[in-house]
């Protein structure tokens, strides 16, 4: 592209010698455009992420200096997604690959990625990862007992952790493009402010709650519960499916030991589920984890709305 810009600049000089004003103007404009595109294009950092929150953080911090991609299809939970070979090759060509850590996106263990370009955004608080207790183990051969279930991974639902993950991203961007440090730091400060505002809002909302026992439709709110002092018991219900009688029976048994009045769903549940839960004295609220694209809305807006739904 720089070569094209150079050629056009030569054309401009020739046109100037010949006195062709129109050609001069056109060649000069194109030359300038191509040069700028080349210079700024080359400077743009290609960043790939494994979920939407990281994409949002990188876009907010990197702004015009980064091109952030998160190629998972919109209808897939990125934690359990397995990209095809072509998508993995796209990841391999990125300047930075932002990982969530905490065993999120286990496909990373099954593909080849450039180790030096991987950034584990939650490494700074890895001692505080929550792990699955009472997981079934198995044994075969000489290896002894082992389990395939590991760590809870929706780390960003603790907004103080989300801010730390954003800090790691900012540091990685500064390392990759030190010339834009000031811009990255300014953008990070704005993002951190947004995240910590939600953090404080959630703290104050939970403090005001008379009942902190909740149900969750999926076991993804562990970090939210720990940070804000909620007592959450999870079932395995899909928002777009009506739970089976067996699942209702299980909830009934859980209600006797955990009389919660609210169930958190990761997406809008079916009206029939809402009604039947209400009949049991359990209200439904939606707290979207936003692991994938949040229906065109940005992460902070959805999280602000989530925070307001907690009562």
């Amino acid at each position: 592209m720089i070569w094209c810009a150079y050629c056009l600049f030569v054309d401009y000089l020739e046109a100037r010698q010949r006195g062709n004003l129109e050609l001069r103007k056109t060649a000069w404009a194109f030359s300038l455009f191509l040069y700028c595109t080349a210079v700024f294009g080359l400077d743009t950092l290609s960043v790939y992420t494994v979920n939407y929150p990281l994409k949002y953080f990188a876009e907010r911090i990197g702004a015009e200096h980064v091109e952030v991609s998160f190629p998972a299809p919109a209808d897939i939970d990125p934690a359990f997604w397995l990209p095809d070979a072509e998508t993995i090759i796209q990841y391999q060509q990125a300047d930075l690959i932002l990982l969530n850590g905490a065993d999120y996106a286990r496909w990373i263990d099954k593909v080849s990625l450039p180790r030096l370009r991987l950034v584990n955004t939650s490494r700074v608080f890895q001692e505080h990862y929550l792990t699955v207790a009472n997981a079934t183990t198995h044994s075969h051969g000489l290896e002894g007992e082992h389990s395939h279930v590991g760590t809870f991974f929706t780390t960003w639902l603790d907004f103080s952790q989300a801010a730390q993950q954003a800090r790691v991203i900012a540091d990685a961007l500064v390392r990759a493009r030190p010339a834009h440090r000031a811009s990255f730091e300014k953008n990070y400060a704005a993002l951190e402010k947004g995240l910590l505002t939600i953090d404080r809002r959630l703290q104050s909302k939970v403090e005001a709650m008379s009942e902190r026992r909740l149900f969750a439709s999926h076991p993804i709110y562990q970090y939210l519960a720990r940070r804000y002092g909620l007592d959450i018991k999870s079932v395995l219900w899909e928002p777009d499916e009506l739970p089976s009688e067996e699942q209702w029976a299980l909830l009934g048994r859980m209600l006797s030991s955990h009389p919660a009045a609210t169930m958190i769903w990761e997406g809008p549940p079916l009206q029939a589920s809402i009604d039947r839960l209400r009949a049991l004295g359990v209200e439904s609220i939606v707290f979207e984890p936003c692991a994938n694209a949040c229906n065109g809305q940005d992460f902070l807006s959805v999280m602000r709305r989530n925070a307001e739904t907690l009562n």
Binding site: T136, T137, H138, H140, E145
Partner: peptide, 11 residues
């Protein structure tokens, strides 16, 4: 058992 499954060499 509740917590562990042991497979034999047939696995």
């Amino acid at each position: 058992s509740d917590r562990n499954v042991i497979a034999n060499a047939k696995l």
